[in-house]
Simulated assay, not measured.
Amino acid sequence: MMLAGCTNKGAVSGSAAGSGAGTGANARTVRMGTMMTEDFLPGWVAAKEQMFPASVNVEVTEFQSAQELSAAVTAGEIDMAMTDPQVSASLTAGGTPVRMRWIALGSTPQQGIFGIMVGPDSAIKTADQLRGASIGVGSNTVPEYVMDKLLEIQGIGEGDFTKEEIKKMPVRFEMMTSGKVDAAALPNSLLELGKINGCTVIMNDAQDSDGQNLSQSVVVVREAFEDEEGGRDAVADVARGWDLAAQAINSDPESYRDLLIEKTNLADPLKKTYPIAEYPASAKPTCDMIQPQLDWMLARGYLKNALFFDEQTGEFGPVK
């Protein structure tokens, strides 16, 4: 059920990861933050190969947790960030409004896959057998949203299984493989690792989402930064460099495998075989993608007040 409206109206915590340095005397510094995931590969490529225009000096900082990244955005230490719609909405609701500027991964269901996996000794073989199961997941995360929606499509409601709160992905993965939980909601890198170790993907959002595009990662900008003089031009320049890098990756993905391995700490068994994603260029989040996530957050109590997403401005607004 649609709960909120949508409109088309018009270094301890992080480590410096290098920069795409502008050479112009008046280059605008743009501080970008990211988790060490494949979603940010175009940003790393653009910085390394100097694809960002000379008008901007892009400084990239890598964070070990989403909480640390969010704290840096809230403190004004980061101007732009690669994150997800749920974090973006939470930042805005918490008093640090951000605009979602483009999709990092997830313009199609085949990009940025999430799914539900069971261990090598599990008797669970079908989605319906997840009824009564314990599923490891982190609250108010993309894996939880995707899990809920995939199970809902199968007619499995919230009371039909048990959510086990396991925030740390490696711990969640280990508990699933060892049988301490019946299943786990995981991102693609761990789904691929699990397959190598004899685990089984029961559902994922590339194949089992009934045509819905459930998950996206996005690049956001603090409204306060973008509204400064020259801010919008700087964001547009960053987008140009990002798109060039995305196109370069898509043209020859294997030439960027070493950088992907370096930046994302892929597990050894995946380093040579992990599929490099096709990255969208100039793809904008749409209301159809984002509004269901906001409604889910409200229903789960992760938002106190309903929000709508304006796909023309990239902003969140209160439902009145």
Rank of each mutant, 00 (worst) to 15 (best):
S122Y: 12
N57R: 14
D227R: 08
T162V: 15
T92A: 11
A4V: 15
D121I: 00
R28C: 03
Q86L: 15
L294A: 09
A206K: 13
L303T: 02
N26C: 06
K9G: 05
T92M: 11
V45D: 01
T83R: 02
Q110V: 08
D227L: 10
K271G: 02
G138V: 11
D268I: 11
K320D: 00
L307G: 04
M176V: 03
F309C: 10
Q312D: 13
G119T: 09
S251M: 03
E59V: 15
V238T: 03
A104Y: 03
D39R: 10
I261F: 12
G136W: 01
L303S: 08
E278W: 00
V45G: 00
G76V: 04
K167V: 15
A185G: 10
S215E: 03
E226M: 14
D210Y: 05
D128H: 03
Y279I: 09
S107T: 04
T273V: 12
G33M: 12
M2L: 14
I202Y: 05
Y274C: 07
E223R: 15
G179F: 09
P170F: 05
D121M: 02
G20E: 06
Q291G: 02
V58S: 04
M32V: 15
T286C: 14
S55R: 10
V30Y: 06
R172E: 05
V45T: 08
N204Q: 09
P109I: 11
Q293T: 13
I156E: 07
I276W: 03
D233R: 07
F63D: 03
F308M: 00
T108E: 12
Y145E: 05
D39Q: 07
A16P: 14
W44E: 13
V87G: 02
A277N: 07
Q247D: 15
S65Q: 14
V137D: 03
Y256E: 09
S15P: 01
K284E: 14
T200L: 11
I261Q: 06
V56P: 02
S122N: 13
N8Q: 08
T200F: 01
K149N: 01
E315I: 03
T7Q: 10
M289V: 14
R28H: 04
L298H: 06
G94V: 05
F161L: 10
Q216W: 05
R31P: 06
D288F: 01
G94L: 07
F308P: 02
Q247V: 15
P187H: 09
K167P: 00
Q67Y: 09
L186P: 02
T162R: 13
A246N: 08
E228T: 15
F52L: 12
L270A: 11
T74C: 00
V73H: 02
S13I: 14
T177M: 11
A283M: 06
A27S: 13
I166K: 04
M51E: 05
R222W: 02
K284F: 13
D243K: 09
A93P: 14
L270Y: 07
V118W: 08
T313R: 08
